[in-house]
Amino acid sequence: MNLSGISPVLLLASLMVASTPILLAALGELVAERSGVLNLGVEGMMITGAITGFAVAVATGSPWIGFVGAAAGGAALSLLFAVLVLWLRSNQVATGLALTLFGIGLAALVGQAYVGVRAPVFARLDLPVLGDLPILGPILFRHDAVVYLGLGLVAGVWWFLHRTRAGLRLRAVGENHDAAHALGYKVQLIRLGAVLFGGALAGLGGAYLSLVRVPQWTQGVTAGAGWIALAIVVFASWRPWRLLLGAWLFGGISVLQLNLQAARVPIPVEVLSMAPYVVTILVLVLISSGRGRAALAAPGSLGQPFHAAR
């Protein structure tokens, strides 16, 4: 077997890019789930973000404003979800799936006018000194700004959840909403905020695909990335840094299998295509069978509707 053709440096560099959309979407979902809301509509919010971001970017000529529009689009769709599950207490699993259906339809309808349109170019940041470093330069310092935004958001979410009072409240609401309510926390509003944040980040992730990665609007541009994002949240057992690891692992295996093919390593393609999913399962089993299993448990109130009993 000849692996010499694959450069680990370039592999790591493309891994950073490949993992960004799922990282963004998963991070938003993580916050929502930490507040106790399971939103399976990530795919729908991502693709809505992909088209709103694309449309706004084309209209304004600025990818940055496009990303703002994408976040707004994703958040708007998640607001619909929030109203349904928080105030009308619909089942979260079914509502999330319905949201995906709705979002894909909405995006396709809006997107009809944007097929074949080209988005404004989103420039890569070339950090002058850092980018020229050997090995580290190409891996870490030659990406576009959204890659760094994703990394920054991981740190930010970690800091927020584990180092701030508001984050503590959000986690408390997710663990036990009745107790949190008894303590006087505004359960519904905190969850609303978390769901909207989740929608906004899913929108950003979708727009990263339609504005940077692909960059083009076509129906089905997210091609299931939202489902992967959901999987990574569970994989990461609701921890931001593990989430980063999960996104890299997943993005890395996806990229690696294509690189192995390009290097003509004789491994059956179908085995390679399955690899990301199988490895995710294996890693998950390894983590969950190890010690400290209690620390891996889902938020206590995840998926349950809250009703103030008075």
Binding site: L80, L84, L88, R89, S90, N91, A94, T95, L97, A98, L99, L101, F102, G103, I104, G105, L106, A107, A108, L109, Q112, Q219
Partner: peptide, 24 residues
């Protein structure tokens, strides 16, 4: 367009799920 039908199905599901609140 097929997309409009999908959107319509999504709406139906939302309304069914939302109205459920009245039973409990």
């Amino acid at each position: 367009p097929a997309a409009a039908i999908q959107l319509f199905q999504g709406m139906l599901l939302f309304f069914l799920l939302a109205m459920d609140v009245l039973t409990t």
